[in-house]
Computed example of a mutant assay.
Amino acid sequence: MVVDSYDFWLFDLDGTLVDAEWSYTRDVFDRVGDRLDRPFTDREAEVLWHGLGGARDDQLREWGIEPTEFWPAFHAEEDPQIRAEATYLHEDAADLVRSLETPVGVVTHCQSFLTDPVLQHLDIRDWFDTVVCCTDELGWKPDPMPVRHAVDELGVDAQSTGVLAGDGSSDVGAAWNAGLDSIHVERHDPARRGQCVLGDYRVQTFSDLDE
């Protein structure tokens, strides 16, 4: 089985292990739209929240929105506790992580002021040996540096084989750039994503790995 093939595992967080209720996402984008005087459709909110169009900054520019204006507004409208209470755990991901007997970590674009309350609210922080939040200093997936930082924190030896699982092309790219295998879990209709994300393994749920 794939699960038994690796010495350590890394996971993306949002869209891979957890997701937020749509009502929370819609409310955030309504308030961000008010700040920017530019409303967001349901489709635009979905694309940006889940990164369906690839790199979010590129998507923002395509829509005529400067990322340097969008992200401060977006983070200003995110309430950590409300976000945590609106977040749920994907059961297939929970089953997989609980079954692993190897070092396990998270590498996420979600910032620490949001990540920490989510992990605490879901009571899953102790599932992970390290949690790495991407930053401008550390880099953003598909940059391999956050992944390499997580591997260093896991303390695995240089000959260990590892895999990174995520729901986006940036996760697959980060895995490959860091010399790891990749698992793409497609939690959205590929037609809505508008592109096909390749990976060493492609599954709709982590339960499919057993097959």
Rank of each mutant, 00 (worst) to 15 (best):
S160P: 04
G179F: 12
E21M: 05
G194N: 08
S5L: 05
S207V: 04
D57C: 05
A150S: 06
V106P: 00
F74K: 06
G162I: 06
P80T: 07
V203A: 04
A84E: 12
D181R: 08
P103S: 08
R43D: 08
L114N: 03
E186Y: 00
D208R: 11
D123P: 01
A175G: 11
K141H: 13
A165E: 07
G168I: 07
D181L: 11
E46C: 01
T135Y: 02
F206W: 10
D7K: 09
G51W: 09
E85F: 02
G15L: 05
L13I: 13
Q111L: 09
V151M: 13
G105P: 04
V172L: 07
P117C: 03
P103V: 15
E62D: 15
V18T: 15
E44M: 13
V131H: 02
G33W: 01
G166I: 01
W127L: 07
F70Y: 12
T68Y: 12
L89Y: 12
S207T: 07
D42Y: 07
F40W: 13
Q59I: 15
P103L: 15
V2A: 14
V28W: 00
V197H: 00
L10P: 00
E78L: 11
D79F: 07
D171S: 09
M145A: 14
L10Y: 03
F206I: 09
L52T: 04
E78R: 11
G194Y: 05
W176Q: 08
Y6N: 01
L180S: 04
G194M: 11
H184S: 09
S112R: 12
R193N: 02
W127T: 02
P39G: 09
R38H: 12
E137A: 14
D189M: 07
L122T: 15
W63V: 05
P39A: 08
R187P: 03
S169N: 11
G168Y: 06
T16Q: 09
A165D: 06
S160C: 14
G168P: 03
G105Q: 03
D152W: 11
S182D: 08
D116E: 14
E101V: 14
G33N: 01
S112V: 10
D12I: 05
